[in-house]
């Protein structure tokens, strides 16, 4: 039995027939097409086990990693498209620069407080890493930005991945650049207030992160800080870390 794979190549649909096999992913089928049928087909991949985030594409209308999507569950007619909201370079290869420039604008790196000279002991009981652990697995594959319909309405919206990263750093008690990050994520149109909680990002994330959770937490942090002042940001966690440090 053959599976029809329709690949959107720069707006033109190319149809390929692939033999159905057991245990076959969409990426395997793409490799088969490239090796046997059309060597000009371009796509990205690296690890093939769903940990590098290179092979994100829209498969049967839904975002997914090609290496983690089983071809057999998709039926005999499969459409493959490049990610949305991201410029296409060729075939299924997209220019991730826009995605990463959004990522960069929230300063996605940890910058420690200079006053703390010793490493902070974060014991499991304190719970100060509990919120952060839920959002750490991100592999920056861009699926959430592609699935986010707010981006199609407001292109400058930072998107779920960048805001999830911003929340991880804001929630980190050791981090020093909370104010700068909050002034970016709180800005109109680009920031968290533009999110309409469609929760499409939660549905497509291959790592089961819920970026919407990070976004609503950032909204609450912004409200709490502006209403109650700087010291009231993350009250329980700051108390926890002070007890540990003292």
């Amino acid at each position: 039995m053959a599976i029809t794979i329709r690949i959107n190549r720069n707006g033109i649909e190319d149809v390929f027939q692939v033999e159905a096999k057991t245990q076959q992913t969409v990426l395997d089928a793409l490799f088969y097409i490239q090796n046997e049928l059309d060597s000009s087909l371009s796509f990205r991949c690296s690890c093939r086990v769903g940990m590098c985030g290179s092979c994100g594409m829209v498969i049967n209308g839904k975002e997914g990693l090609a290496c983690r999507t089983s071809l057999n569950q998709l039926g005999i007619d499969v459409s493959v498209q490049p990610l949305r909201h991201i410029p296409v370079i060729k075939d299924l290869v997209v220019d991730m620069e826009g995605f990463f420039s959004k990522y960069r604008s929230i300063e996605p790196y940890f910058s420690p407080r200079v006053e703390i000279s010793e490493p902070i002991v974060a014991s499991p009981q304190s719970g100060i890493r509990k919120d952060i652990d839920l959002g750490l697995e991100c592999i920056s594959c861009g699926l959430c930005l592609s699935a986010c319909d707010v981006v199609s309405m407001v292109p400058e919206f930072l998107g779920p991945a960048a805001l999830n990263r911003a929340y991880n750093l804001v929630a980190d008690v050791r981090d020093d650049r909370t104010d700068q990050r909050l002034s970016v994520v709180g800005a109109p149109r680009i920031g968290v207030w533009q999110c309409h909680t469609h929760m499409s990002c939660v549905e497509v994330c291959p790592k089961n992160i819920a970026p919407t959770r990070a976004i609503v937490n950032l909204k609450r942090i912004l409200i709490r800080r502006s209403l109650l002042g700087k010291r009231h940001h993350f009250i329980p966690k700051v108390h926890a870390i002070k007890m540990e440090v003292d």
Binding site: E115, Q180, L222
Partner: peptide, 19 residues
């Protein structure tokens, strides 16, 4: 570790607006 100072004067001067 030393207790972190909340009122760092350098930081206060460039305090961004929380929107």
């Amino acid at each position: 570790a030393t207790e972190s100072k909340q009122e760092n004067p350098k930081q206060e001067a460039a305090r961004p607006v929380i929107l």
